[in-house]
């Protein structure tokens, strides 16, 4: 797919569904440590960082399963 993932960490709730969906899409197992998107939380502050590994080849799986609009798939023009 030609596009990229737009991120808005302010809207991230820390549910990590994106990480589960990513590992499932690529490996057919659930395992956050195999995910190409990484959500790092600061539980005490209620904040979350959104990062991607170098292996991420933007598809829309993580954005498709983000219920909070913290991730959106943007088509390249």
């Amino acid at each position: 797919m030609a596009g990229y993932i737009g991120i808005n960490p302010q809207l991230c709730t820390g549910c990590r569904t994106c990480m589960l969906a990513c590992s499932f899409a690529f490996f057919k197992v659930f395992n956050p440590s195999k995910s190409k998107i990484i959500i790092e939380g600061n539980e005490e502050e209620g904040t979350f960082d959104i990062k991607f590994t170098f292996e991420c080849v933007p598809c829309d799986v993580c954005a498709k399963y983000c219920a909070y609009d913290a991730l959106t798939y943007v088509e390249k023009e």
Partner: peptide, 17 residues
């Protein structure tokens, strides 16, 4: 309330920050 927090795999995020 400033935002919602979700448990793992939850699309509701009922917790209030």
């Amino acid at each position: 309330k400033k935002k919602s927090i979700g448990c793992t795999a939850c699309p509701i995020a009922c917790a209030n920050w």
